[in-house]
Design a protein around this nucleic acid. Structure first.
Length: 507
RNA sequence: GGGCGCGUAGCUCAAUGGCAGAGCAGUGGCCUUUUAAGCCAUUGGUUGCAGGUUCGAGUCCUGCCGCGCUCACCA
């Protein structure tokens, strides 16, 4: 496919040819650097603070982000993984030819290696006095940013890439010009690290289970379907890890967790991406009360490690992750919010009638669980700004959770909400294989055959349970959403490096 | 999938239905401590795509593509 180069790109392509014609390789194989930008500045400041005269000699490497030629001298800024540092080129040191080489053949966005020693300019900025430099990699396409300025050490970018479509489709360009975007993903990595530290320290074993599954399950969602050619077998991309992780409890692995990707074939929105990262753990001999306590402790730990404090601002709201969280029993919460007591309405028909009486239009033909789900997300979820557990869910939307003793219609399940978003979901896991089989059958019956979210029967899972599964508590949490909260981003796309966008025909 | 909005130069944005513009970037100059350096000159457009209305369309209409917000669905 022939690529049409822009006029700006053509000029840079000509520079590449010109460099090669002069025996200068624009993409040399090896680079060298002794210090990052920050290390070089700190090294100089340390020597300066001691009042020493020794020269701090360094070799730096980075991307050219600003150039200010002034006749026989030139100032430039390069950016590397640590930040920015100014370069100072002077014809006296380099010769006029070499300075001209820099001014003519280097463009914004090019990677450069420069050596010299650090000094402080009249304006007070710690700067590399360049003795020699070379091209490390020529950029053909100009970076989508006009110009930057540095005010009191803060980089202010002007006319910087902001079109969300370009930012997400060309995330590399977004990352290259928007350092705060890099920070989001550093923080995301810190969150994952903290979660692993927390669980590892408590004896949880990190495992990996199949993404390609012959039978999907563990959540109510439409799967993606793929096909194995040689086996002539349709496979599903997993919608949760649950059924495989609980098989491991049968295998006497008492505490397991997995962090990985789930795939759900549903609509995309500011809080939904077709593939998203999930943490699930299963904990033998624990129940949902213990899981609740561990959840509080775990998120406080993450906040400590990632933010250094337990409070943060999300979309203008001050949120505290200090345990204990607020706890609201689902039945009571819905009663307070809507005046409807779900316990009085054991059937979908009765509940739909009560909703109509309360002026809420129920979705026609929806199962009781779906109606309750709708009530939660409309009347409760948006109000749950501070960390809150909603607990004790109806059995019919929780086919893998264990009933409350003495109340077969209610299960020991909770969901955690922060910032008006559902963050996690957990329950005392059902470990009775006969009850589980009955639940699978119920799901098949109560849900329309057309409803792709009904649970398929997983015979192997039932076989595993029949070997005996210890009582246990299980937990699932969306990592993307947690990252949204801790980076104050309204859109899930901001916290996924390459979010799904509709494919676009390229010319 | 429905509703609303948006799409103009590499980037950020202007342009009552009447000559498609600005800043930065780029190009050619001047300039030895600048920092959105400055000064002089200058290049750059299939106005998302395809039709239509009109003497004349970036602007109005229809369809399509993409993005955003929102509703539905979901986590």
């Amino acid at each position: 496919m022939a690529r049409e180069y822009s006029p700006l790109e053509k000029i840079r392509l000509e520079k590449i040819e010109s460099l090669r014609a002069r025996g200068i390789e624009p993409y040399p194989t090896r680079a060298r650097r002794t210090h990052t930008s920050r290390e070089a500045i700190q090294a100089f400041e340390a020597v300066e603070a001691r009042g020493e005269e020794t020269k701090v000699e360094v070799t730096l490497a980075g991307r050219l982000r600003a150039v200010r030629p002034m006749g026989k001298i030139t100032f430039a800024h390069i950016e590397d993984g640590d930040g920015r540092v100014q370069l100072f080129f002077r014809a006296n040191d380099l010769g006029e030819e070499k300075l001209k080489f820099f001014n003519r053949d280097f463009d914004l966005g090019d990677f450069i290696q420069a050596e010299g020693y650090m000094f402080r300019t009249r304006a007070g900025e710690v700067t590399l006095w360049v003795q020699d430099f070379r091209m490390l990699a020529k950029a053909i396409t100009p970076l989508p940013a006009a110009k930057d300025e540095v005010v009191d050490g803060e980089v202010i970018s002007h006319a910087v890439l902001s079109d969300p479509e370009t930012r997400f489709r060309q995330r590399y360009a977004d990352l290259a010009v928007n350092p705060e975007v890099r920070d989001i993903f550093r923080r995301r990595a810190a969150i994952l690290r903290a979660l692993r530290e927390f669980l590892d320290a408590r004896g949880f074993l990190e495992v990996e289970t199949p993404i390609l599954q012959p039978i999907y399950g563990g959540a109510a969602a439409k799967p993606f379907i793929t096909h194995h050619n040689q086996l002539k077998q349709d496979l599903y991309l997993r919608i949760s890890f649950e059924l495989y992780l609980k098989r491991l409890l049968v295998g006497n692995l008492e505490r397991v967790y997995e962090i990985g990707r789930d795939f759900r074939n549903e609509g995309v929105s500011f809080k939904h991406n077709p593939e998203f990262t999930q943490l699930e753990f299963y904990w033998a001999y624990a129940d949902y009360e213990q899981v609740m306590a561990l959840t509080e402790e775990m998120l406080a730990y993450v906040a400590d490690r990632v933010l250094g404090k337990r409070t943060f601002t999300y979309q203008g709201q001050e949120i505290s992750l200090e345990p204990p969280w607020k706890r609201i029993e689902l039945r009571q919460g819905l009663l307070d919010a809507t005046g409807i007591d779900i316990q009085q309405h054991p059937t979908a028909e009765s509940l739909a009638e009560a909703m109509r009486a309360a002026g809420i239009e129920p979705k026609p033909g929806a199962a009781r669980g779906k109606l309750i789900d709708a009530l939660i997300s409309t009347y409760l979820e948006p109000r749950l700004i501070q960390p809150t557990f909603l607990y004790n869910y109806p059995r019919d939307i929780s086919p893998l959770a264990k009933s409350l003793p003495g109340d077969p219609q209610t299960v020991e399940r909770f969901e955690g909400f922060i910032g008006g978003m559902e963050l996690c979901n957990a329950f005392t896991e059902l470990n009775d294989p006969l009850d589980q089989e009955a639940r699978f059958l119920e799901m098949g019956r109560d849900y329309d055959v057309e409803d792709e979210e009904r649970h398929p029967m997983d015979e192997d899972y039932l076989r595993a349970m029949r070997y005996g599964m210890p009582p246990n508590g299980g937990f699932g949490m969306g990592i993307d959403r947690l990252t949204m909260l801790l980076t104050d981003k309204h859109s899930i796309r901001e916290v996924i490096l390459f979010p799904h966008l509709r494919s676009r025909e390229e010319e």
